[in-house]
Design a protein around this nucleic acid. Structure first.
Lengths: 264, 264
DNA sequence: CCTCTCTAAGTACGGTGTACGTAGAAGTGC
DNA sequence: GCACTTCTACGTACACCGTACTTAGAGAGG
């Protein structure tokens, strides 16, 4: 994981809380330490050198949470269970992760950190973008909870930033504006997430679930009220099943063509 | 939110035993009525003419839940609160909605039912697809919770089927295969959902949140480690802000072009 | 040293989904 | 009419959740 340091150079001094006035000895008595804390975890330094050394790192916390989610699904990730997995008390975890949301942020960024990207793009934009998408899909296949998380909240952690940088660099030779590039990055990410979700739904569910879907769609078709749907399902069922990788490539290529032929 | 396999761990009756075999008339008295029920709510009849008439309709339940979600967010939708809004006991709701997931399904399909679509497509595929996307975006703007829900689970309710039919009919004149059409439908839906989510994040958050984001990105840029990101942000901030509708149209057109120029 | 800030942990509260059991209403077959 | 079955309605109870508040102690800066 070549994430180096997570860009935490300036955030500590976030001046929103002017509690540094020494003469007043009595703050409202209810300001232990994290009262005016930032809502974004990346704005909070991992270590603020004063007290005892924290017993756990963000990386370890994320790893513990990821292990839980990989094994038993995202719902199994609770503050209690993560803390227990770390050998810590439940409430100790709140020193590192003030809200549960932040735990998800850590997990997601750690998973994004698994993407293996070349140090710099090849210069062939289409290949670079496809490489990125492939890495993302692979990670989402390893971590079934990842796509859903990424869809539900935008991530701006250090590893996500690295990916953004790679993407933008790959697109540097195109005539696209900054806004369009950012839109495309979001669109590409969203596409991969959705594909991974779809794949997980289609493949990961039980046979019973599949049987129910077939029953349901059969009933729907039998009503005769959806002739085009019926024909389309029949057509897609009749042709060769087209494995997942090919389907991904096909849809991805459609999207990339749209990107790369756009002149603005 | 998609959960992998929560598999509620009630130890009392080992759930792995499929006690649905009809010949055995005496399950251990632990099969009230909904034991072998389908996991998909659309496979369950709204009324199964035997007992007393239900006091509430699915539409009313969905409406109550939607009112709650519109007012206070999706998290405010709990079985207790929906039941209370209907004037029913909490557990009565479980007669209509065996799992909370199903409540979400009802809400989503009811919201999809708000799409106003012509009885039949115009014949101009691009315009028809844009019309559909526009209706979807409008509904998602009315219901801020909708995009997130639609992204997190595929909906196959009656109204969603009507939309699918419209979409497929609009694409009937193209040389695309059935599988490709279904992929495109998913891709188009996903695009609209993501756009709506993005818009909601960008516009709906507090000023404080915005200030934090600016602080954070400023710090990130200041590290100098992300030159392309810095340049892109500067570029997009420098140009005209480009209102939301235009941005939607631009991205949508990119996507539709990709669809309509595909030969398979 | 003292002092201040941090970390660690426990306890407790209000909320959640939902399993279970009971009571009664409305259809069906005799 | 009758039983019988199947449904609806709803209260109680449980396990678990996120987290506010509190206390105790560790370690650096003066």
């Amino acid at each position: 994981m070549p994430s180096g340091r997570p860009a935490s150079d300036k955030p500590a001094s976030d001046g929103t809380q002017p509690d540094r006035t020494p003469p007043d000895r009595t703050p409202p008595a209810k300001t232990p330490s994290a009262r005016g804390a930032p809502g974004m975890i990346w704005l909070r330094p991992e270590r603020s050198g004063r007290g005892p050394e924290p017993a756990h790192s963000r990386a370890a916390i994320a790893a513990a949470a990821i292990a839980l989610a990989d094994a038993d699904g995202l719902d199994a990730v609770s503050m209690r269970k993560v803390a227990a997995a770390l050998g810590a008390g439940t409430m100790s975890l709140y020193n590192y992760v003030p809200k549960k949301e932040h735990l998800f942020d850590l997990m997601l960024d750690a998973a994004v950190g698994e993407f293996v990207l070349p140090a710099e793009p090849s210069g062939e934009a289409r290949a670079d973008l496809a490489r990125f998408a492939g890495e993302a899909l692979a990670a989402m296949r390893r971590h079934p909870w990842m796509a859903g998380l990424a869809l539900s909240r935008p991530s701006m952690g250090p590893n996500a930033l690295r990916c953004t940088e790679f993407f933008l660099r790959a697109l540097a030779g195109t005539p696209l504006g900054g806004g369009a590039k950012m839109e495309m990055f979001a669109q590409l990410n969203g596409f991969v997430c959705q594909f991974a979700e779809f794949e997980r739904n289609a493949g990961g569910a039980t046979a019973e679930w599949h049987a129910e879907l077939v029953t349901y769609l059969g009933g729907v078709i039998a009503t005769g009220r959806y002739p085009y749907l019926a024909a389309t399902l029949a057509d897609s069922a009749g042709s060769a099943p087209l494995d997942a990788d090919r389907a991904f490539e096909r849809s991805l290529n459609r999207l990339l063509s749209a990107f790369l032929t756009a002149r603005e």
